[in-house]
């Protein structure tokens, strides 16, 4: 059993086989095979209990459907079902996605990392710079000259669509 502890001191007990989907945790388990149970506590600091909860839900769903099966010989129907489930799982606000990305990166869970990054890219797509700034709280920090002249002229080729 692996214990994850979040910043608000909540404990999450997970089966080793399930937590193995994190390559970081898998390495820790490998390194400490045969040691005391207390050794297998992982503190996930600076992050509230919402994220470990989500990560574990993700793990459980994927544990029931191992990667190899998911790629090679999984039936079309099952693949569709998993896709629908993932779409729903990642349908959340940008702050949660942000935290999921950080957690997936630290815990080294490639499929969760990719899924959350792809969702963020979907959110940013087809929006104006102002909208993106609003959603993601990016401040542009450009000087007046940069905003008015430098950037538009430097990148004019991206917006050019008319060709004689």
């Amino acid at each position: 059993m692996i214990t994850l502890i979040s910043s608000d001191k909540r404990k999450f007990h997970v089966l080793e086989e399930v937590a193995n989907q994190s390559l970081t945790i898998r390495d820790v388990i490998e390194d400490r095979r045969g040691r005391r149970r207390a050794d297998r506590i992982i503190l996930v600091t600076n992050i509230n209990s919402k994220i470990p909860e989500k990560v574990i839900v993700y793990w459980l769903r994927h544990f029931l459907m191992p990667e190899e099966i998911a790629h090679a010989s999984m039936s079309h129907k099952k693949a569709e079902k998993l896709k629908k489930w993932e779409a729903k799982f990642f349908d959340t606000d940008i702050d949660t996605l942000n935290d999921l990305i950080l957690a997936a990166d630290s815990l080294d869970i490639p499929s969760l990392f990719d899924g959350a990054c792809e969702k963020v890219s979907d959110i940013l797509k087809n929006r104006s710079a102002e909208e993106v700034g609003e959603i993601s709280k990016i401040e542009n920090e450009f000087t007046h000259e940069e905003e008015e002249e430098e950037i538009p002229s430097e990148n004019a080729w991206v917006w050019r669509n008319e060709f004689a």
């Binding site: 992982i42 503190l43 600076n46 963020v120």
Partner: peptide, 11 residues
């Protein structure tokens, strides 16, 4: 695992 996070945004 320390997830450095001060502001909730993409930056």
């Amino acid at each position: 695992l320390s997830l450095s996070r001060n502001l909730p945004d993409l930056s």
